[in-house]
């Protein structure tokens, strides 16, 4: 898996600068406006866009065929995409906690938001990767865009409702989002592996 992961990092190094710019930009927007949602949304984007780009390159380069013929297992190929997604998503998401260094950000609502988006970021990755493996990048791209937009819309709506509900509801909602994202990860990986196992290259 290390070889494939390294290859992905080298393949994407040109794009990393672009990702870094987007992350810094939205972090600054969040810090200036006092609205953490901008940056939290970017963390969801980051978790999926890197593996999606890596898979798009691999489809163009016929990498999977070469890797499988050279002794890389189907399991390693599938799991390396999750490793790539997590290696970008986790640090970007973790960076959200830097907001709490600013006193005005230290609210329960912001904490719930960051935790909820952590769970949702994982959940989007859990949903998108098996689809990409099954359908290919081009067909799955539309699903991915629709899913991210739907999640963002859902978040805005849910945040308003949860805010109105008050009490323990925000805490339960963020725990539920985290649980879905974390528990969904092994389930998603198992589905991806099963797709890869029977795929012809």
């Amino acid at each position: 898996m290390k070889g494939t992961f390294l290859k992905d990092i080298m393949n994407l190094k040109g794009q990393m600068l672009y990702y870094a710019f987007v992350i810094v930009f939205f972090f600054a927007v969040g810090a200036i406006t006092g609205n953490i949602y901008f940056y939290a949304g970017v963390s969801i984007f980051c978790g999926v866009v890197a593996p999606l780009s890596a898979i798009a390159y691999d489809e163009k380069d016929n990498w999977d065929k070469f890797a499988l013929a050279s002794g890389v297992s189907r399991k390693e190929l599938a799991f390396s995409r999750y490793a790539l997604g997590l290696s970008l998503f986790v640090p970007v998401w973790a960076l959200s906690f830097v907001f709490f260094a600013i006193p005005s950000f230290r609210t329960a609502e912001n904490l719930y938001t960051v935790l909820t988006f952590g769970g949702l970021g994982l959940a989007v990755m859990d949903a998108v990767l098996p689809l990409v493996f099954k359908l290919g990048v081009e067909k799955a791209r539309t699903v991915y865009i629709v899913l991210v937009v739907a999640v963002m819309a859902f978040c805005v709506g849910a945040a308003s409702l949860i805010g109105l509900a008050g009490g323990y509801v925000p805490l339960v909602a963020c725990a539920a989002a985290l649980a879905v994202g974390v528990i969904g990860l092994p389930v998603s990986a198992a589905v991806s592996l099963s797709v890869y196992k029977y795929k012809d290259f």
Partner: peptide, 18 residues
């Protein structure tokens, strides 16, 4: 076993960005 095989599979299979 697969490491004992050298494969060239028609179209380029190496990562083009590298």
């Amino acid at each position: 076993d697969k490491n004992r095989i050298g494969a060239v599979l028609g179209e380029n299979c190496l990562p083009e960005n590298l």
